[in-house]
Design a binder for these strands. Sequence first.
DNA 1: TTGAAAGCGATACCAA
DNA 2: TTGGTATCGCTTTCAA
Lengths: 344, 344
Amino acid sequence: MTSLSTNRPPRVTIREVAHRAGVGIKTVSRVVNNEPNVAPATAARVRAAIDELKWEPDAHASNLRRTTTRTKSVGLLLGSVANPFSATIHRAIEDIAIHRDVAVFASSLDDEPEREIAAVEAFVRRKVDGLILTCAAHSQAYLTELVPPEMPVVFIDREPADFAADTVHSDNVGGAELATRHLLGFGHRRLALLIDRREIWTARERERGFLAALAEFGVSADTATIVADLSDQDAAERAVTTLLSVPDAPTAIVSGQNLITVGAVHALRRLGRHHDVALVGFDDVELADLLEPGLTVVAQRPQEMGRVAADRLFASLDTGHRLPPAAKVIPVDLIPRGSGEIRP
Amino acid sequence: MTSLSTNRPPRVTIREVAHRAGVGIKTVSRVVNNEPNVAPATAARVRAAIDELKWEPDAHASNLRRTTTRTKSVGLLLGSVANPFSATIHRAIEDIAIHRDVAVFASSLDDEPEREIAAVEAFVRRKVDGLILTCAAHSQAYLTELVPPEMPVVFIDREPADFAADTVHSDNVGGAELATRHLLGFGHRRLALLIDRREIWTARERERGFLAALAEFGVSADTATIVADLSDQDAAERAVTTLLSVPDAPTAIVSGQNLITVGAVHALRRLGRHHDVALVGFDDVELADLLEPGLTVVAQRPQEMGRVAADRLFASLDTGHRLPPAAKVIPVDLIPRGSGEIRP
DNA sequence: TTGAAAGCGATACCAA
DNA sequence: TTGGTATCGCTTTCAA
């Protein structure tokens, strides 16, 4: 083998454009970067030359010398891109980003703390302009040294610890209260709560709301069963099966998350108890209205969450630095469809 | 405001590392790029200097001069990141990419041709290493001039036109045949097919399969109703309502896509015909097994599709050039759950 | 309003 | 096995 032919395609450079337009390269640079002090006629000639030559500025070359470099990309950390809740957030963010010609990197964490850090590292290394993250780790202190001080960060769905930044999340306490109060209002006194691992902030918040509603109705927490550590559908299904097999079993269930809800519905159906045990799920699921009975849920607004988070991120990006951290709480909506209106 | 302070952090450069290690910069370059011809002792000294100075090579500077530049990112074009089918593909690809430290950009096209081209442009401009795309445009000829000749491209879910590259898709014709044959086997003779716009390749393929099965059973295509241009749930719901309002209405429905299936189920329920009109959907949907009757579907294997597509992309990337285009057809699975086993 | 010259931080080539 | 030097394509600086 002799000619290892670099085969580099004959790139069009700024120099050729400048020559074609009969100006200096600095003037071409001014035009493409919308800098002031270019005569309209000159700018027009330059633009014509750019079009004729089909020149595209080389991003690497620009960013090399530039002080404030933008990759026009953002990093998004989610539970899983395959989870409908996360996917809806993702789409909402993409819809805002695309208007600004910003591309979105997404990464699935599966609630594993190490993956959160690895993903942040990976995105920072790729020099994303900003980060939107659903945190999985116990503390976000690591962000202080990992993320450049001017890079905007927005937390979505969960509040961070040891790191101050914008946060957007559902009214978890209020939503769980609403669900629980709804069941209590229908006469239930033996309730169960099914939640994910307590390391997860939303699980803790929803538990707080559940307990607050019980207290409000003067129902002792001792009469309630709380099953935690339910991180997938199968675990939830097994938990409900066990739950209902004991004497004085709960007559109503609050599910703390969409996967748990689906698992619970499966269990109730298999046991033939779906017309008998009340169920309210946190977060809506597809086809919930077509089940028999319809599935009552406290619906979140993932699209709104994504939109608000993206707006906030771009606001920081526009001002050129992080805005003072603010927290935005998104309301939830109780949707009665049948399963939550069953009496004990 | 006075000091617009560039605030550029004092960057560590390769020069300082070379000085510290007592070598030339080219030797440092050799070490970080694992090039041959470096004495082990020298390499060790260089590595020590890199660690001490915490030097990280500047990606922009490297990529500027480098001929074969890798950003360790790939672009993924999907129907919508919020559609469960697309989202599952996305996740499968991410799971493979992450092992190679490759990040994934995703873009939702909503089946709009212009967005396909815009998304490809956006990704090429960001110098992704490869592209996986569900095409929405009529022709992919544009890729020839838009995409660098060595950049690997894999089509997923749909076959491209006017551009040869790897393709991964379901057995659409076979799947539609399977669904239709299933209904014909239960005695149905007046069938309806609900599909998306015929510009979409999968819609055309599934129509072919539907017609083939009819022919196989000696049923004239004239007795069948084909409703096309159904691109969302509402349209499907309306179509089914209209469909069943005429005399000699179809007794069985084949739905060509997940959104259409959900719309059809809604219509049947609203009309109270769900125990009466048979339905087989293409592509599985969440909770399908808990409906009454259960929803019979021809399930696709989105996870397998994503995995195969990603494997193929990385195989091309590993060899350093596009592999000869190959087509991989992924099997589908008929899952009988009740709605497809209703007799006329 | 304009442009010439001096980098930016790495890689490529070639001589030592 | 090494390292000097010429780039890479653009932004910055500064003088015209």
